[in-house]
Computed example of a mutant assay.
Amino acid sequence: MIRIGGPTSGSGVQKRSGTKGTSKSGSSFAPASGAETERSGVSGGVSSAYGVDALLALQEVEDPLTGKRKNAARRGHDLLDALEEMKADLLAGLIPEGRLDRILQLVQTRFPSGDPQLEAVIDEIDLRARVELAKLGRFPD
């Protein structure tokens, strides 16, 4: 059987005896040349601040495609939210006319993103929304 006990005074770091900074031989560390070295001045402090400013400036520059992707993704999310609300309305038994108008408007407005993968996903969302509208007799142009 193994017994686990708490911390004991016998384990851990032991204290050094003697005065601080001296050794038994009486010698201490000294530079090989024996002369004091000059302290160097601050170097590079100013240039590093410019580097950070340049990085922050680059982060603020928006890629023209990023804005298009954001708009297309936002439209896709809005369309998915509207379809989810439509599903809840179908379960309740009544779909408000305003909800159908909103979905129809979202289907008719398209923002090209320039990203083929994002476009493929949005095409699938559009198709699903068009099918749901067609089931309810609202055929988009």
Results as ranks from 00 to 15, higher is better:
Phe29Glu: 05
Pro31Tyr: 04
Pro31Met: 01
Pro31Asp: 03
Ala32Tyr: 00
Ala32Ser: 07
Gly34Trp: 00
Gly34Glu: 00
Glu36Gly: 07
Glu36Tyr: 01
Thr37Pro: 01
Arg39Gln: 09
Gly41Gln: 07
Gly41Thr: 09
Ser43Asn: 11
Gly44Cys: 06
Gly45Leu: 13
Gly45Pro: 00
Val46His: 06
Ser47Gln: 13
Ser48Leu: 10
Ser48Lys: 12
Ser48Arg: 09
Ala49His: 05
Ala49Pro: 00
Tyr50Phe: 15
Tyr50Trp: 12
Tyr50Cys: 04
Gly51Ile: 08
Asp53Ser: 08
Ala54Pro: 00
Ala54Asp: 07
Ala54Met: 07
Ala54Leu: 13
Ala54His: 06
Leu55Lys: 06
Leu55Tyr: 07
Leu55Phe: 09
Leu55Thr: 10
Ala57Pro: 00
Leu58Lys: 10
Gln59Thr: 05
Gln59Phe: 08
Gln59Met: 07
Gln59Tyr: 04
Gln59Lys: 08
Glu60Ser: 14
Glu60Val: 06
Val61Ile: 11
Glu62His: 07
Asp63Thr: 00
Asp63Leu: 03
Pro64Thr: 03
Pro64Gln: 05
Pro64Trp: 02
Leu65Gln: 11
Leu65Val: 03
Thr66Gly: 04
Thr66Arg: 15
Thr66Lys: 13
Gly67Gln: 09
Gly67Asn: 07
Lys70Leu: 12
Lys70Cys: 01
Asn71Ser: 12
Asn71Gln: 15
Asn71Lys: 15
Asn71Leu: 15
Asn71Pro: 00
Arg74Tyr: 08
Arg75Trp: 08
Arg75Ala: 13
Arg75Cys: 03
Gly76Glu: 04
Gly76Asn: 05
His77Phe: 12
His77Gly: 14
His77Gln: 14
His77Asp: 15
Asp78His: 07
Asp78Met: 08
Leu80Gly: 04
Leu80Gln: 12
Asp81Gly: 04
Asp81Thr: 12
Asp81Arg: 12
Asp81Ala: 13
Leu83Lys: 01
Glu84His: 12
Met86Thr: 01
Ala88Val: 07
Asp89Cys: 09
Asp89Ala: 15
Asp89Gln: 10
Asp89Asn: 11
Asp89Ser: 15
Leu90Lys: 11
Leu90Cys: 05
Leu90Met: 10
Leu90Glu: 15
Leu90Ser: 10
Leu91Ile: 02
Leu91Ala: 10
Leu91Arg: 09
Leu91Met: 04
Ala92Ser: 12
Gly93His: 05
Gly93Glu: 03
Leu94Pro: 00
Leu94Glu: 13
Leu94Arg: 08
Leu94Asn: 11
Ile95Phe: 08
Pro96Met: 04
Glu97Ser: 12
Glu97Trp: 03
Glu97Val: 14
Gly98Asp: 14
Gly98Trp: 03
Arg99Ser: 09
Leu100Met: 14
Asp101Glu: 14
Asp101Val: 02
Arg102Asn: 15
Arg102Leu: 14
Arg102Phe: 14
Ile103Thr: 04
Ile103Val: 15
Leu104Pro: 02
Leu104Trp: 10
Leu104Glu: 11
Leu104Tyr: 10
Gln105Ile: 04
Gln105Ala: 15
Gln105Trp: 06
Leu106Trp: 06
Leu106Arg: 02
Val107Cys: 11
Val107Leu: 04
Gln108Trp: 02
Thr109Phe: 10
Thr109Ile: 14
Thr109Glu: 15
Arg110Ser: 13
Arg110Cys: 10
Phe111Gly: 01
